[in-house]
Amino acid sequence: MRSDNRTKGQLRPIKITRHFTDYAEGSVLIECGNTKVICTASIEDKVPRWLKGTGQGWVTAEYSLLPRSTQTRVSREAAKGKQTGRTVEIQRLIGRALRAVIDLEALGERTITLDCDVIQADGGTRTASITGAFVALVDAIDYTFGGHGTFPITDFCAAISVGIGPDGPITDLCYEEDSAAVVDMNVVRTGAGHLVEVQGTGEHGTFTRAELNELLDLAESATDELMNIQRVALGTVADKVGKVYPVESSIEGAGQ
C-alpha cells in the first residue's frame, strides 16, 4: 500500500466540474486528489499568420502555476518577464496532445486557446491539465458548432503519470511519490488506444524494458478509466465526439 493507501494501479479520486466559469466557451475544474486545475477553452475567429488562407484552424495552450498553488509561494512568471523552461514544455505538451484529436480543417480558420491554471498542486499537474482541457475543448466546440457540419473532435484524449517508486511501478503519483520516484513517466493516449506522447525519465536510477512495459500497461488502464470519467462528465455531449452531422451553410449562433 502507498502513503494514501492506494493500490499500485489506483487513481486518486477524480472530479470534473463543467461550466466552472461564466465567460469561456468551455471551462472545467478538474480535481485529481489534491491537485486542482482550472481549464478554459476560448475560440477566436482568427489563426496565426502562417495559417491564413489555408482553411485550417489551430489549437494552442498556456499553463501556469498560481502563486500559492504549492507549499511555498511561486512568483508569477509575468513579474519575472519570462516563462520558465518547465512552463514552456508543459504548455507545448498540452497543445500537442489536444491537436492529436481534433480535425483542424473541420475547425476552419479559428484558434482555440486552452488556459490551464493550477490552483493547487500535488503532483500530476500537466496530466490533469490535459485530461481537464479535453472536456473544456469538447464543450467549447459544442457551444460553437452544435450539430452543424463535422464535429471537429475525432476522439477522446487523457493523460496520466506513472512511475517506479521504492516498491515498484505505481500510477498517478502525488507530489510525495513523484519527488522520490526512481523513474517518472507521463503518458498521453487517445480513445482508440494510440499513444500521443510518452515522456519517461530515470530520475534516480535506470529501468528495464520489462518495467517500461509494466508502466505502459498501468498507463493504458488508467487513461481508459479517465476517458470513462470524461464521458460521464460530458453526458450526451460525449456522443458527438467523432460524429459527422448534416452540413449547414452557417454555424453562427449554433449551440447558444
Rank of each mutant, 00 (worst) to 15 (best):
151 F>D: 15
20 F>E: 10
219 A>H: 07
9 G>T: 11
84 T>Y: 10
72 T>Y: 05
157 C>F: 02
16 I>D: 06
63 Y>H: 01
37 V>C: 05
142 D>I: 06
176 E>W: 02
40 T>I: 05
91 Q>R: 09
212 L>Q: 15
206 T>E: 09
201 T>N: 10
13 P>A: 02
92 R>H: 07
127 T>V: 11
175 Y>M: 05
5 N>Y: 11
100 A>M: 05
17 T>K: 15
115 D>A: 15
177 E>G: 09
127 T>D: 09
1 M>Q: 03
148 H>C: 05
230 Q>E: 10
70 T>K: 11
135 V>F: 00
204 H>S: 05
196 V>K: 00
103 D>Q: 11
234 L>Q: 09
2 R>N: 14
135 V>E: 13
137 L>Y: 06
66 L>Y: 13
227 M>L: 04
53 G>I: 03
36 K>P: 07
213 N>A: 09
90 I>G: 11
93 L>V: 14
227 M>H: 03
253 G>V: 14
37 V>T: 10
139 D>P: 08
83 Q>N: 11
212 L>H: 15
122 D>H: 09
112 I>N: 12
145 F>I: 13
29 L>T: 01
204 H>W: 03
202 G>F: 12
107 L>M: 12
120 Q>Y: 10
202 G>K: 14
108 G>Y: 00
4 D>E: 09
123 G>R: 04
120 Q>D: 15
5 N>M: 10
102 I>C: 11
46 K>A: 15
47 V>D: 01
34 N>I: 00
33 G>N: 12
202 G>H: 07
42 S>M: 13
83 Q>T: 04
224 D>P: 01
235 G>S: 07
156 F>Y: 14
132 G>K: 04
124 G>M: 13
111 T>Q: 01
98 L>I: 08
235 G>V: 06
71 Q>T: 07
136 A>I: 00
168 G>T: 07
244 V>I: 11
32 C>H: 08
147 G>P: 08
190 T>W: 14
137 L>S: 06
107 L>R: 05
87 T>L: 04
121 A>D: 13
2 R>W: 10
210 A>T: 13
137 L>Q: 02
211 E>F: 03
236 T>I: 09
14 I>D: 04
25 E>C: 04
26 G>R: 09
165 G>H: 10
183 V>H: 02
167 D>Q: 11
184 D>S: 02
36 K>H: 07
38 I>P: 12
171 T>Y: 09
8 K>T: 08
107 L>F: 05
